[in-house]
Design a binder for these strands. Sequence first.
DNA 1: GCTAAAGAGCGTAGCTCATACGCAGTTAAT
DNA 2: ATTAACTGCGTATGAGCTACGCTCTTTAGC
Lengths: 248, 248
Amino acid sequence: MAEEFELPADVALLWGLRETPRRGRKPSLSVAEITRAAIEVADAEGLGAVSMARVAQQLGNATMALYRHVKSKDELLKLMSDAALEEPPPMPPATDWRAGLTLWATTVLATFRRHPWYARIPLSGPPLGPKNLAWFDSALGTLADTPLDEGEKVTVVMGLLTFVHGEMRLTTELAESFRENPEVFGPSYARALRQVVDPRRLPALGRVVDAGVFDHPNLYDEQDVDADFRFGLDLYLDGVAAYLARRG
Amino acid sequence: MAEEFELPADVALLWGLRETPRRGRKPSLSVAEITRAAIEVADAEGLGAVSMARVAQQLGNATMALYRHVKSKDELLKLMSDAALEEPPPMPPATDWRAGLTLWATTVLATFRRHPWYARIPLSGPPLGPKNLAWFDSALGTLADTPLDEGEKVTVVMGLLTFVHGEMRLTTELAESFRENPEVFGPSYARALRQVVDPRRLPALGRVVDAGVFDHPNLYDEQDVDADFRFGLDLYLDGVAAYLARRG
DNA sequence: GCTAAAGAGCGTAGCTCATACGCAGTTAAT
DNA sequence: ATTAACTGCGTATGAGCTACGCTCTTTAGC
């Protein structure tokens, strides 16, 4: 951990490595507090409500005071996206890779669901924040006893993370849309499809519609969404198992 | 396709079902043109550059003229997200489900890559746009000869779409970040990791770093990214194959 | 103790955006 | 010919980000 190379400013902020000021007025604000306030606002009112003014108000300060601690709103968003991840759960002893990755994926997803705005924060590079790296380590750790080499472990974990990110995007955005507009997930969806789908042009979709697959009173059902996630997750993990068998 | 039930206004717009005005000045603008112009701007300058003023300028009109055709910027974004999808490719005859889904997934991803802003447009409900439904139909069609029931087909396709969406998000956002900031994907990443990762706290990640997995001159390599996608896709499809074997 | 540098908080103002409102000009129906 | 319907768009409002610089506070150095 030699400090020969200077870390980028935002990474240093993520790790809380700012050197403490020696003179001047005591700061009444800190990066951590600002980040926490921003997350509170985003959780309660959505990412759209996170303005510098709103966050400052949450802290009882003036808007411009935040800029002493944070370079820009973009930087604040980056800080939020690491801080929102809590610590990864400890793996129970003697967890095999499959149980471990299943626990990992469902916990990641549950964390994302608690902060639905997470999917809207742009990625700005490979992971470097402490929480991000802790989760990364946790996933890699579940594969420790497999015959995969280190590069393969990363690839398998990235594939899983890709799937979880997709699920997060679909899930949280549809959930939000459901909250403010439940009708589009009701019977009117099947009705609209029947109006708009010409079975000659879209035969496969026509068959699905005819089979009544969309004739639920509520297409956005928590239970169904979770079951679909588990189904897709299991398919991916079946693939990993097959790869391990071929490999090991 | 009886019109007994009124389609929502935005869906009607997507399908071009607005009744043509009988009186008044001939429109010099159309929803399709506005959408196309907005997509041009987004492709060339990013979604951030898409303002009502910029789109109007692209068309040589005044800002407020757009509002005669489009209710709000949000509605324009919805229109963009359907129009950006081109038509799905015709499946070569006698394509089996696996080749079909592979072709489908890679084509979807290629389409997304041509419009990197796609991942940033919020989903507003289940798919109803013509292009979206065409792609949906195309994927479902590849599963026509399998023993899956219609509901299972939807689940399998949604799982695959989830994975592709995740890949799209990671891929396009990292690509954008790479374009405007290539250094963070260079050797400085491994250097930063070595400074910040304590092998006692993050042992699995420490092993990966030590193994030199991140010691590439460029972590964001098109080839590698594609290979990783193919690897994850194959794992998922292996899982589907196993499910089909169990099922059929 | 005194002075000055360093740093915090923040008021003001400039710029970009979305969009409500209403006017003026244009076309087709009557 | 008249008028209803409809388009294009100028103006204005309010919200948001943030550059700049002033003022007050704290501590280092003497």
